[in-house]
């Protein structure tokens, strides 16, 4: 049953991708198609990365309400943008070569996550609550620092930081994408290989260890994958806190299974589907009158509230 639903999700993604590519296509076909294909590829890899990373994070954190974003990825990204604008000025920031900027952002995000994860995990990988709480405080610190620095920017520079602080797919650099896509695909495949062990980890640390799973090593591997997936995706498109939550929650309710072999590709496809369908609506039907990330974050936030309220009612 769940396998068939996964197949339907795949078909849905295919339909959305085809619509996105071909709807209202007019001359010059080649140019428009290549532009749309670049955006489509970015939407798919970013959505898939965030969706799968969130499922893995929720399993190792043993909490269905968390997203990797909660440990401060988005705040760190905004701080990096603020620092770059502050140090280089608006013109210098705009003139930054894309590849080094992308590499710096990815390394800074992955580095911060690794630092945070390793600092906490030195206390024992079982202590995910401490990891999450430290991450939340780390995020607040980064956000506070970014807000403070933004106050000393002039209004035009502040506007540049603001526009960079929301995820956007309107100006994806194909070269950046060419670097990011294979990295993300490799991390997704690695995540899929860990799927059976993640099923056992879902039983809780003690039970998983009693069944012979080297739980602490598994958690380290998974957190490294999550850091890579979220860092690359965020550096490519910008921060999306609630997209993962939306994709992971929908995957769990649609596929109705605990098996990560299905949940990981399911959440990856749903993440991609949400972004592709959202971008299609936003570009073709709303005439670019809003920002995709705002719509996704709004829907994700609603799902988050719904999950919290439903849990409280239960």
């Amino acid at each position: 049953m769940a396998d068939r639903r996964l197949l339907f999700l795949g078909l849905g993604l295919l339909v959305a991708a085809t619509l996105y590519l071909l709807w209202g296509l007019r001359s010059p076909y080649g140019f428009i198609l290549s532009l749309r294909a670049t955006k489509l590829a970015a939407l798919v890899v970013v959505g898939a990365a965030i969706g799968a990373a969130t499922v893995m994070f929720q399993t190792v954190a043993a909490n269905r309400l968390l997203t990797p974003g909660i440990v401060g990825f988005d705040a760190m990204f905004v701080l990096i943008q603020t620092l770059l604008v502050l140090l280089l000025g608006g013109i210098g920031y705009a003139a930054l070569p894309q590849i080094p900027k992308f590499a710096i952002e990815t390394l800074a995000l992955a580095g911060a996550a690794t630092l945070l994860f390793s600092a906490i995990l030195r206390q024992g990988a079982g202590d995910m609550t401490r990891l999450v709480l430290t991450g939340v405080i780390f995020g607040i610190l980064m956000r506070g620092l970014a807000t403070f620095l933004q106050r000393i920017l002039d209004p035009s520079e502040f506007a540049i930081v603001q526009s960079a602080s929301f995820a956007s797919f309107t100006a994806i650099d194909p070269v950046q994408l060419a670097f990011a896509a294979p990295l993300l695909a490799a991390a997704l495949v690695a995540g899929q290989r860990l799927a059976p062990a993640l099923d056992v980890a879902g039983l809780g640390r003690d039970r998983a260890r009693a069944l012979g799973v080297d739980h602490d090593r598994l958690v380290l591997k998974v957190l490294a994958l999550i850091a890579g997936l979220v860092a690359v995706a965020t550096a490519l498109a910008g921060p999306m806190t609630f997209l993962g939550l939306l994709a992971a929650s929908l995957a769990a309710s649609i596929l109705n299974t605990h098996r990560h072999r299905l949940l990981l590709p399911g959440a990856a496809m749903l993440g991609a589907l949400i972004l592709v369908a959202g971008q299609f609506l936003f570009e073709r039907l709303l005439g670019l009158q809003s920002t995709l990330s705002v719509i996704v974050e709004f829907l994700g936030g609603m799902v988050f509230l719904m999950l919290v309220l439903r849990r409280r009612a239960a």
Binding site: D206, G212, H258
Partner: peptide, 16 residues
Amino acid sequence: ARRVALLSQGSPALPR
């Protein structure tokens, strides 16, 4: 784990 099975008092398992 092939020699000793332990049933500990743990948190609830995965849903579904």
